[in-house]
């Protein structure tokens, strides 16, 4: 089936099999491998991207469902060599260890902060419920989102 969508500001059109997941489309067709595959069953959040501005788990969406939509992946966050404030905050606050969960964490943080620019620590933890960090670095991840909120509110 022919789909047309915008990813990180660029328009794409491809003929895809209906069973192709959005994650596989991003990783294997567009070569955007920053979106990770963790559990592959919508639990871990490593595959999180923004679809029309909302955080979604791309492993549980078909590429055909994203037809006509606008997608932002982790590759679309930085402005050239300048990190997005959320990415910069993760770097400053040591919000990553192995880094596997980080793209998903950053994309979910973008959704949290868009809807609630001044979240409490509890609201950040609640917001990140769908993202697992197996290094269990949650404490610094929460601090990173807090710092990102401060930067974005300046």
């Amino acid at each position: 089936m022919q789909i047309k969508l915008t990813v990180n500001g660029k328009e794409y059109s491809h003929d895809v099999e209906p069973r192709l997941s959005l994650t596989h489309y991003l990783r294997e067709v567009l070569d955007l491998t920053g979106t990770h595959i963790g559990c592959d069953t919508s639990s871990c959040g490593a595959c999180t991207v923004l679809l029309d501005g909302r955080a979604v788990k791309s492993c549980t969406l078909l590429a055909v469902q994203a037809d006509g939509c606008e997608i932002i992946t982790i590759e679309g966050m930085a402005n050239g060599s300048e990190l997005h404030p959320i990415q910069a905050a993760f770097k400053e606050e040591h919000g990553l260890q192995c880094g596997f969960c980080t793209p998903g964490m950053v994309m979910t943080a973008a959704d949290i902060l868009k809807n609630n620019p001044t979240p409490t620590e509890a609201e950040i933890r609640h917001g990140l419920e769908g993202n697992y960090c197996r290094c269990t670095g949650y404490h610094n991840i929460v601090k990173s989102v807090q710092r990102a909120a401060e930067t974005l509110n300046q």
């Binding site: 999180t48 979604v56 788990k57 549980t60 969406l61 949290i112």
Partner: peptide
């Protein structure tokens, strides 16, 4: 229900 991403879909 679920988490942010699940609630969005």
């Amino acid at each position: 229900i679920g988490d942010v991403q699940v609630r969005n879909c």
